[in-house]
């Protein structure tokens, strides 16, 4: 059981490294990505600073100026998401194939014993492809997802490729509906 768990953690490390490597090859090293990323970071920080230094939002001119800057930032953010999207989809397909391969290798195998009984909607993952009614049995998929969650996030942080807090706070990616434009945290 211990060897299976450790193997799964290594698989998660390997896939996270592979995924970041592919992302670098297809996205992070491109000039367009670098330019847009720098632009978004700069604009997000500038907007945040302006908002902090100008608390008086009743001034219409300031409000309009901020709205204009926010609109510009949103456009850049969407363009950045578009640059990422194509390559991310390719990477996702490759990883789905890899995941189904590992899933079939570990099919029906209890890789660990959970020290808690998962709630019903998590059992679909934690008890996937396992027989029996003992819900403390842990499947490959559950441990793999948990390992990936912390390994990938930390790896991105170490490599410095995660979006900055200011840019994340804006949260205006390609999938954000335009109707949320007025619900900006900067224009409350």
């Amino acid at each position: 059981m211990l060897s299976d768990s450790i193997l799964i953690i290594f698989i998660a490390v390997f896939t996270a490294l592979l995924s970041e490597g592919l992302s670098w090859l297809l996205i992070y090293r491109t000039e367009k990505y670098k330019r847009l990323q720098a632009e978004v970071e700069k604009q997000s920080k500038k907007l945040e600073k302006q908002k902090e230094s100008l608390p008086d939002m009743s001034d219409k001119n300031h409000k309009k100026k901020l709205e204009r800057q926010e609109e510009k930032l949103k456009l850049n953010n969407r363009e950045l998401s578009m640059v990422k999207m194509k390559s991310m989809m390719t990477i996702s397909f490759a990883f789905m194939a890899l995941l189904s391969m590992f899933n079939s290798i570990f099919e029906g195998r209890v890789v660990a014993k959970l020290p808690f009984e998962p709630i019903s909607w998590i059992r679909g993952i934690s008890h996937r492809n396992l027989n029996g009614e003992d819900y403390t049995d842990c499947s490959f998929l559950f441990l793999y997802i948990l390992s990936t969650m912390f390994i990938r996030q930390n790896l991105q942080k170490i490599l410095g490729v995660e979006p900055s807090r200011a840019a994340s706070k804006m949260g205006n990616g390609f999938f954000t509906p335009p109707s949320q434009a007025g619900a900006s945290p900067f224009l409350k």
């Binding site: 059981m1 211990l2 014993k113 912390f150």
Partner: peptide
């Protein structure tokens, strides 16, 4: 919080399985 929670779960599950299961 979420990242640290997932690392907690992984280490808790692995060590618990190895020592108490």
């Amino acid at each position: 919080f979420m990242t640290s929670f997932s690392s907690f779960l992984v280490f808790w599950i692995v060590v618990y399985s190895a020592l108490h299961a």
